[in-house]
Computed example of a mutant assay.
Amino acid sequence: MTFSDDEIERYARHLMLAEVGGPGQQRLKAARVALIGLGGIGAPASLYLAAAGAGTLRLIDDDAVSLSNLQRQILFQTPDLDRPKVEVGGERLTALNPHVQIESRPVRLSGENAANLLADCDVVIDGTDDFETRFIVNAACVDAGLPLVSAALGRWSGQVSVFSGQPCYRCLVPEIPPDAETCARVGVVGALAGVIGAMAAMEAIKLITQAGDPLTGRLLIYDGLMATTRAVVIPADPHCPTCAVG
């Protein structure tokens, strides 16, 4: 796989990194990343992945841009109101990097279509905000053997983790919490989406380029109010309904 003169200049800062270099950038160019949800996490993550030269971005979201999105979803602008997110996102990401292929899927991921929507992908980023969809995404990734970058945020804090086999997301969250919160219910500071979305993109880039130590089996928790982070190990649940063997 070769790079054009434009790509060599565009990715120069990657190419000089020992952990990425030419081989890593080629892996990025060959990769297909699925982003489930172009919201607070998916919007900034998609921008950084496009800028990084991820070869194909599959955008999965059935939502349209609303005014309340613009406080944190930096992929969109005021004139985009009421337009499909994947349509606007595709235009912005192509404008940022025309070398990236965009696959728009203006549908809601479900148990019936998850396997088809994630087919042929190398990495999945889940930025959805409801546990039912997260469980479906997790099960589809476990079945397909796909690494899953899972991220969430609310109020002033966020979290990022990578799941690949065991443990899986259901080992962390076995059942839907009865007091589950969403940004619409409890609020979220806008800049937090940029922090967590960038972290999700970082983990995807590490997985693709085989650089560093991804957050596989670990949960990174960021507290924006206190400006602190901590990482905890996620143990595999031997009774997990999704990934337990036997």
Rank of each mutant, 00 (worst) to 15 (best):
D6K: 03
L49M: 13
G37I: 08
P106K: 10
V20K: 07
P214M: 10
R83S: 15
D213W: 00
T242Q: 13
C243P: 05
P98L: 05
L109A: 01
G22R: 14
E103P: 02
G187W: 11
C168F: 02
T228F: 05
D143R: 10
Q159I: 02
G21C: 05
A64K: 03
L109S: 01
E112Y: 03
A152Y: 00
Q26N: 04
L215N: 09
G24C: 10
L59E: 11
S157P: 00
T242M: 13
S104A: 15
P177G: 03
D122L: 02
A34F: 09
R108F: 02
F163I: 04
T229L: 12
A12Y: 00
G53K: 08
C240K: 10
D82L: 11
R72D: 09
P44G: 13
V65H: 05
A54T: 15
F135V: 00
P238K: 10
T229I: 08
G217R: 15
L148N: 09
D120Q: 14
V160L: 10
C121I: 04
I176W: 00
T94A: 15
A114W: 12
D120P: 08
R218T: 08
S68H: 14
A211I: 00
A144Q: 15
D63I: 14
S164P: 00
L57T: 02
H99Y: 04
R32H: 09
T242E: 14
L47N: 06
A50Y: 03
P238T: 06
L148P: 03
P23E: 08
I41W: 13
V124I: 15
P79F: 10
S66P: 02
T216E: 12
L172W: 01
V100H: 11
I41F: 13
G22I: 04
C183W: 03
S4F: 11
A200E: 05
P235I: 06
A51N: 09
A95D: 09
L28V: 04
T182R: 13
L109W: 05
I221Q: 15
P238C: 09
G190V: 13
A119I: 03
A144M: 06
G42P: 02
A152R: 00
N97W: 07
A244L: 11
G197K: 01
V86C: 10
Q71Y: 03
H239L: 11
F131I: 11
V123R: 03
K206V: 00
R72M: 10
A114H: 08
M199H: 12
L67R: 14
G246D: 15
L220S: 11
Y222C: 10
G246S: 07
G224D: 12
A193D: 07
S150L: 01
H14K: 01
A236D: 04
I74F: 09
V123I: 15
P177S: 07
I74A: 06
V137K: 07
A152I: 01
L35D: 08
L49E: 07
I41L: 15
L81S: 06
L35T: 11
E9Y: 06
V88K: 04
N97P: 07
L153P: 08
P79S: 11
S4M: 05
A119N: 08
G90I: 03
E203T: 00
V100L: 07
P23K: 07
D223G: 08
